[in-house]
Design a protein around this nucleic acid. Structure first.
Lengths: 241, 241
DNA sequence: CACGCCATTTGATTTTGATCAAGTGCAAAG
DNA sequence: CTTTGCACTTGATCAAAATCAAATGGCGTG
């Protein structure tokens, strides 16, 4: 299923890409050395402070990105300000909606992050010529779709307690793909963001955190650092039996 | 069923596909006459009664399908029976999750429907050889992703009233792609299904229907037939300003 | 026609989570 | 070391939707 470039050690690959690809294996993995060089000519890396907007709802898409480091949240807002986080992207996810000029969502750094930007038209051209690249993007879209549907069940049918536990489980399993130990991690989102992700208020989120803490499902230090003594127990609280 | 020949220059295309493709333009539109003939050799059409399961959560995927007629609901269930509809597919949508052998969802006919089935391995082989086909599937996945994210906002942040209005608006705009007049249609789902789609109970759905009826936003006959005198007004009730 | 079987509606009550309103704790600025 | 500003927590109350419990209203069958 996974298709890897054979010439992974080829020295024609741009230096900046070599480290990245080795660590992450994002969509760039579908490209030949020449294509990578070509793309790299037009691409640029950027640091994003927490809260920095990558693209706004309704704006014209000029760039796609790869997330190198950090967490990016995808949000939708209603006219009256109600807001829902519709996706979280972790490194090394591809960020962008191929084939549409206007973004239907806002993408914003949830933590300090680093991204690699490519101009839309350069990548679009490359996609047309590189079926393997479209395949990678297709896989990414399908992964996001699976995640979105999982989350729809959470939003529509779970209790506040289960929602919060589901969130913690999601973060535990996604925050650090390198690490084997998922039992300790920092939350990439504020209480307000967590509420927006879960379709709750910050007060309800806070109360559920307190409850989970009192029942020894989690421990919390400094509001952001979470320890999970028994991951299976957390999963049961999340309603994933 | 009588199938008319619509284009004398396409006489290599299987008769059964010619009418379908002309009417709908689904993913098969990406295929050459030969590929269509090849695929058609292995494909088969089926009528599905309301409630018939196309595939169950956790089952092995053996077929992909095109929906020829009707509405198919995609659902997820929790261990304790709580259920959430995570997608509705209308003709001529492609039905299936490429590149995964185990289905994460249940697909079930919401109305009497007709589908065209292709064996998974035949289509998978064809996808590898036909970038244009993967492109179509990619577009379909992105469309479903956009819809899923729209719905996440509805599930997470809208009131019961807005949810029901949003559902009616969704159906009005999707049920009959041919028709210009969206103001009258039959609901493809029972109250129970609507509740599962909206993350509500049937009682709440019923009450909101009654309220919308009393406020003259909609009229209902025989529980299933809906008339919308002012679509913009419905849209406002749905919170889509 | 009467009957039972559905799906749907309606009503009474309870529960959950939202809202409103203080408090707490911590870190940066004065 | 105070003050100020956040982010978060906690408590009291309120409202929306769930739950429990009957009705109602076709619709097909005996």
């Amino acid at each position: 299923m996974e298709v890897r470039r054979r010439d992974i050690h080829n020295s024609d690959i741009p230096v900046v890409c070599r480290a990245c690809e080795a660590r992450h294996g994002g969509v760039c993995g579908a490209l030949t050395a020449e294509q990578l060089t070509e793309l790299n000519k037009h691409s640029s890396r950027h640091r994003l402070e927490t809260g920095a907007e990558v693209i706004g709802q309704g704006e014209t898409v000029v760039n796609y990105s790869n997330i190198m480091r950090g967490v990016v949240k995808l949000t939708k807002v209603m006219a009256d300000g109600r807001q829902q986080i519709v996706g979280l992207q972790f490194a090394p996810d591809f960020l962008g909606r191929p084939f549409l000029t206007e973004s239907a969502i806002t993408a914003e750094a949830a933590t300090d992050s680093e991204v690699c930007n490519f101009p839309r038209n350069v990548l679009d051209r490359l996609v047309k010529r590189t079926p393997e690249l479209e395949h990678m993007l297709h896989q990414q879209a399908l992964k996001e779709l699976d995640e979105a549907r999982d989350w729809m069940l959470t939003l529509g049918r779970k209790t506040a307690q289960e929602k919060v536990a589901s969130f913690l489980y999601l973060i535990a399993t996604h925050i650090d793909p390198e690490s084997v130990d998922m039992s300790a991690f920092d939350l990439p989102l504020s209480r307000a963001d967590i509420a927006d992700f879960l379709g709750l208020t910050i007060e309800t989120v806070s109360r559920q955190f307190t409850k989970l803490r009192k029942e020894n499902v989690i421990r919390i230090e400094n509001n952001r650092h979470v320890t999970v003594p028994d991951m299976d127990r957390l999963m049961r609280y999340a309603g994933n039996d």
